[in-house]
Design a protein around this nucleic acid. Sequence first.
DNA 1: AATGAATGAGTCTTCATTCAT
DNA 2: AATGAATGAAGACTCATTCAT
Lengths: 212, 212, 212, 212
Amino acid sequence: MSFTALSALKSKQLTDQLIDQSVIVDPASAKGRLLKSAATLFKRQGFDSTTVRDLAKEMGIKSGSLFHHYQSKQEILLNVMHQAILLNQARLELALSLNENLTDKIHALILCELQASLLDTGAQMTILVYEWRCLNPENQQKLLTLRDNYEAVWFEHLSQAKTQGLVNIDPKILRRFLIGSISGTIHWYQEGGKYSTEKLAEMMLMMALKDA
Amino acid sequence: MSFTALSALKSKQLTDQLIDQSVIVDPASAKGRLLKSAATLFKRQGFDSTTVRDLAKEMGIKSGSLFHHYQSKQEILLNVMHQAILLNQARLELALSLNENLTDKIHALILCELQASLLDTGAQMTILVYEWRCLNPENQQKLLTLRDNYEAVWFEHLSQAKTQGLVNIDPKILRRFLIGSISGTIHWYQEGGKYSTEKLAEMMLMMALKDA
Amino acid sequence: MSFTALSALKSKQLTDQLIDQSVIVDPASAKGRLLKSAATLFKRQGFDSTTVRDLAKEMGIKSGSLFHHYQSKQEILLNVMHQAILLNQARLELALSLNENLTDKIHALILCELQASLLDTGAQMTILVYEWRCLNPENQQKLLTLRDNYEAVWFEHLSQAKTQGLVNIDPKILRRFLIGSISGTIHWYQEGGKYSTEKLAEMMLMMALKDA
Amino acid sequence: MSFTALSALKSKQLTDQLIDQSVIVDPASAKGRLLKSAATLFKRQGFDSTTVRDLAKEMGIKSGSLFHHYQSKQEILLNVMHQAILLNQARLELALSLNENLTDKIHALILCELQASLLDTGAQMTILVYEWRCLNPENQQKLLTLRDNYEAVWFEHLSQAKTQGLVNIDPKILRRFLIGSISGTIHWYQEGGKYSTEKLAEMMLMMALKDA
DNA sequence: AATGAATGAGTCTTCATTCAT
DNA sequence: AATGAATGAAGACTCATTCAT
């Protein structure tokens, strides 16, 4: 993947644009800051172990005040996940548009999701995996279409890779293995450690594709 | 992997032997049944969302009675994890002894852990991954040596594979990717679905090794 | 009771006159509309179950804004009750002035209070009965004189009826029975149902007086 | 009504018999005492204004312990009402069996319900009237059949009275007026005051029947 | 071993009220 | 006048744990 493509993902322009378009909640607003804090805490402690008092304290308000912004803790979770998908999908599309080669594109997919899991961006994709069962069925339904759209992008590219002989197993299963590998990183990844997210993405690409 | 090796893993002999040696708690005893029930519930609902009343009901006793067997819910979790490691390690060693070829051995490693995650054996390895943070630091320490022993086996084999050119990335990282892929299966694996645990293990082997 | 008397009770003239004299709050003003809404909600849901947000929503404003009109929810209750007594007393006096015969006068008393309980007039007398204990002692004291004046009118007429042999029990007790019967109607009266308020008043009169 | 009939209603035998038959909860048991306390508090303060802490304090336990006996405050209300109907219905049937004359029977009906409203018996019928809307729809449904049975007894007797010319208005409406009169007594009745429940019942009978 | 009752600290949530803008 | 954000005290309910029986 080119240096240009990599750095584009980090630019603030992207986020700003999404805010302008009201795709995501303005991270500077009270609601936005709450979502960011919640994402961080849910990732660190899990949804169940994060109390509304924790959330409130993180924002410097009292717990009752939270409910001025969201009707319930559950609604906060829903929004955290919603934002995560939206933000990551936007990053993904940008990344894809900046790469031509299929291998590079898959590399980009991996990197995007990895960073969305590990970096403190508010787009904590791991929450989607680990806290999914904390979402009530009604809310799960609401997110399912969005998740499906997102997964469709992965499937499309891994299928092409299969056709081209870059992949030798069922692409659906490969994707599931990769979800596990990626989300699992939060249990051991350390910022400033031996491997950067970029390096990890590269290694994961090597595992996923036959001759990467 | 040979048919003999596969079926040996399923034999009851192994478990019986471990009980005789008092390595693991007799699954027929009250304590043993509790551990099994707990493993099932912790896997299904998570540790935090499993109440001590849930555990008691599963055993057909009242919640207060649980504390005659274990001093706290935390202690139950500790023992569930402990048993999981012990049981799985024993299965692992048996599996390794039944295979000669390095590729077969790695295949066996994967299959063992996959089954320990997906099958209702009481050796629910996924709990180690997903509920690790529910273990208090003191108890984490107690299990760490055991986990290290277990991981050493994996590292040894993946390192050999690296040397032989079967693996092209850092074995430590590969192992972590595999932990993620394996434990992630609980989110989507369905018994009686398209792929069996054996088939999944095969596919994971193909992903992990260059020419498997 | 004559047709003239009946329809006079429904005329808007009466209310207008009271507003002009500043006896009651102008129902077109913000304060007046709030009182009307509050009366409706308190009757329907009870004082405790009506939130200040409910009241605000009914008026199309935000809850904080309510406190520009009244200092507290308690004060709103006080005023709702106050208005109810004033309005009903005025209607009562009019009704009495339009009837000569004692039986007709008692009929009028009953009809007035029944309509004040059942119709959506802002003079919800039932609130006086059912929400009285929600009024703090201080405010109860404030209304007591007013209530006593109002009750004096009833007592006077029922006493006369006793003297004339139309009533055969202690007039004070009869009045209390009637309060119960009248306020109880809100639990079952349905507008447009089998019996009109006029018909119900007639039946109640028959129960109260020996040969009505 | 005869003296025998009156005193039979007060005997403890009746209650004991019901307990033996498990028709009602034993008032000496924890559950029974809770129900009694709850009935008293709900009557005095209303359901909404009675906190679970109030209930617990009345029983000398901590609030959390309440939920060992009943799953929710709502369930307590349901049971209080249920007991009230059962107890009162039993008293009613006894009273009816002890009186021959129609007038006496109606007198007995009134007295029973009046005492069930005013005396501290655990059969607080007024709660049925005043707190009915606090019962959720599901629970309302559960009690409806029971209430209907109970009301059928009243209807039967008042209808007979109508046929005999003792009553000159629709018996259904008369019953509703009487419910109001009876339940309304809690707002003003004072034990040891001028009138006893027996005296009040007599007066109410005089109001209800033409020549009582 | 087992039970049932009790505990107490904790959970999310509600709501009347305040106040700067 | 009106708003939106915030407060804090209170609400019902949960749950691991204890303990007398």
